[in-house]
Design a protein around this nucleic acid. Structure first.
Length: 630
DNA sequence: CTAGGGTTAG
């Protein structure tokens, strides 16, 4: 209201009001625009056709269905409905409020020109209903053809770039990929292939469907690329876990002369987090400051995440502490950061602090805190949070929460309870749930339950090699040779082959990559000498009952000299004493290696962070794709 | 009517 008072002229004809609305809408002051409208009504001046589009745009942006339907009534009362701009805005407002059905009722009231068709098509797309969007598109084409003969028709319908762009952006989940591919054909057929915005929407569509290679093909064929193009490709790679490619494309973008914005840096930071590339991440932070994005809450969260995932909790905490806006996501990031590095106590304290500060926990932060508890052995605390989640916050537990609780109980050796929990689940347990149980069976060498868990998990994810390896290693642990062979036969039947284990460390801005048993590195000789030395030192101080190497080493898949050991030895040879060493691994870090690292860490008095980056590596012909970049 | 955005496990 203060805004309205400040801006309202003493004499207020509708045109003057409309100009004020236009200004507010342009400045994206959507709430203020609606407030001004209320003021306007009180001043007994009637809105006209130029009034509604601005207001409806506010409803669309703020997703206010009730305000939209009130405005709808006003539109009818003032006789503005036949105005195509007003109608398309109304259609858009309803669609953005997730009411495509209401939008359609407006659409069906009278014959429509292009912009109303486009608004309706885009409405269906926004509500991920590409089939209805396409059927409307067909209707549009029929009408376009019928009108072709008519001369002087003032309600012409013409398929344009916006139509296709809206259609394409409706196929943003993998299930709609087939429709998307057809639409790609339409784009080319209608001659919009060279339109920048349309091509951008194609890149985005493929990326959202998880088809990064197809996206890349469109991207590569574009002669002109703008900021949106680069961002679509960069964040597309980031979202699909192709972290190495993100940095590659970012490099190309810088060469092409297009300036990065906040969205670009967001994608790059997320890639750095996943790769453990703190050096590049620091450069991005400087870039952020230089471009004036230092306070962007999205970027700050990504920055905290990057430092935390790279093991630099000190810096992560600094950035977090001096962030102005702390959303659930900010808290999730910092809690998860402490969680993955085993600081469970700090994580739970932060969680409580978050609740105290008035931020309502969501389902994601519960996944994070549950897994933090399970890593730190805070079993009962974790179970407490699980109860609180259901009872106090009314968050329905999904399979991902159950997987965490099964892991929590399983690690603590409470396998029966874990099994009972699975039986009590209202949602169908997924691979992760049974996988968590299988993992717990590995720790506690429970073959019987492992076989049960495996039976379920293989049914749900028959092509996930991790579970076969896990079961095989359980058999190895208990000297069940027959079991090992059985798993191997199963794997051979399904044509599954284990990728070679590889690890890498960032050193002087370059990644150094090691495969298990690999001797191709320049410093190979020194590395192996160093390892020999460490092994004998470790053997001296190793507690007698703990084994850090599998008993039947030749049976453990991918055994030999583990790649993480090579990476650690390399880092010890080359980096300053006192600094932390972060090692990344393409597969789960070998359990037996953990004890080795703990002991070596004591001997050399250095901190190690050995992290599993399973989801962020992409292998082609056995070569890790990040190697090409560095 | 119009393309790009931070967090989550085993």
């Amino acid at each position: 209201m203060s805004v309205a008072e400040r801006r309202a002229p003493r004499w207020n004809p509708t045109t003057a009001w409309n100009n004020q609305l236009r200004q507010l809408s342009k400045q994206r002051q959507y709430r203020e625009a609606l407030t001004l409208y209320r003021h306007m009504l009180r001043s007994s001046f009637f809105p006209n056709v130029f009034t509604f589009p601005f207001l409806l745009k506010s409803c669309a942006f703020l997703s206010l269905p009730l305000t939209a339907s009130q405005l709808h009534a006003h539109v009818i009362r003032t006789g503005s409905l036949p105005d195509p701009y007003t109608r398309s805005s109304l259609i858009n407002a309803y669609s953005k409020c997730s009411l495509p059905h209401h939008a359609r009722l407006v659409f069906d009231q009278m014959p429509n020109p292009t912009i109303c068709y486009n608004a309706m098509v885009s409405g269906y797309s926004f509500n991920s209903d590409p089939l209805r969007a396409v059927s409307l598109f067909r209707q549009m084409r029929r009408e376009e053809e019928e009108e072709e003969g008519e001369v002087g028709s003032d309600v012409g319908v013409h398929v344009n770039a916006v139509t296709l762009l809206s259609l394409v952006s409706g196929c943003s989940v993998a299930t709609h990929l087939t429709v998307g591919v057809c639409l790609h054909g339409c784009v080319v057929g209608f001659g919009f292939g060279a339109d920048l915005a349309v091509a951008n929407s194609l890149v985005t569509m493929y990326v959202k469907c998880g088809e990064v290679e197809l996206a890349r093909r469109v991207f590569d064929e574009m002669p002109v690329k703008d900021l949106i193009t680069w961002n679509a490709m960069i964040s597309g790679y980031a979202q699909n876990g192709h972290a190495g490619s993100v940095l590659e494309v970012y490099g190309e973008m810088k060469l092409s002369g297009v300036r990065a914005d906040a969205v670009t840096l967001l994608g790059v930071l997320s890639a750095c987090a996943n790769l453990g590339a703190q050096g590049i991440g620091r450069e991005v932070e400087r870039e952020m400051e230089r471009c004036g994005f230092g306070c962007n809450p999205f970027l700050r969260n990504a920055l905290v995440n990057m430092y935390a995932r790279c093991g630099n909790l000190t810096r992560a905490r600094e950035v977090f502490d001096c962030s102005e806006e702390k959303s659930v996501v900010s808290w999730t990031v910092i809690i998860g950061g402490y969680g993955i590095h085993g600081h469970g106590k700090v994580a739970v304290d932060l969680f409580d602090e978050m609740v105290e500060s008035g931020v309502r926990p969501d389902e994601t932060v519960f996944v994070t805190i549950l897994s933090a508890c399970s890593h730190a052995g805070l079993t009962d605390r974790g179970l407490g949070y699980f109860e609180e989640m259901k009872m106090k916050y009314g968050v329905k537990p999904g399979p991902e929460h159950y997987a965490c609780v099964v892991d929590l109980l399983g690690r603590a050796g409470r396998l029966e309870e874990a099994m009972d929990l699975i039986k009590s689940m209202k949602v169908k347990p997924d691979g992760a749930v049974w996988g968590a149980l299988l993992g717990a069976c590995k720790i506690h060498k429970n073959v019987e339950l492992a076989e049960l868990a495996f039976k379920h998990v293989v049914e749900l994810e028959p092509m996930n090699i991790g579970y076969y390896v896990l079961l095989s290693n359980i058999y190895t642990d208990v000297n069940n040779l027959e079991g090992v062979l059985r798993v191997r036969v199963m794997m051979r039947e399904r044509k599954l082959r284990k990728d070679p284990g590889c690890s890498y460390v960032e050193y002087k801005g370059k990644m150094h990559l090691f495969y298990s048993g690999d001797r191709t590195h320049r410093q190979s000789k020194e590395i192996y000498r160093m390892l020999d030395e460490l092994e004998s030192l470790v053997n001296e101080i190793r507690p007698p009952d703990e084994k850090y190497e599998g008993r039947n080493e030749e049976l453990l898949m991918g055994a030999g000299v583990h790649s993480e050991k090579l990476a650690i030895a390399f880092a010890l040879l080359n980096t300053r004493s006192g600094t932390e060493i972060t090692v990344m691994k393409n597969l789960r870090v070998c359990v037996d290696c953990h004890l080795f690292f703990k002991l070596v860490s004591k001997i050399v008095n250095r901190q190690f962070i050995v992290r599993d980056a399973t989801r962020f590596h992409h292998f082609r012909d056995g070569i890790c794709s990040c190697k090409d970049y560095w």
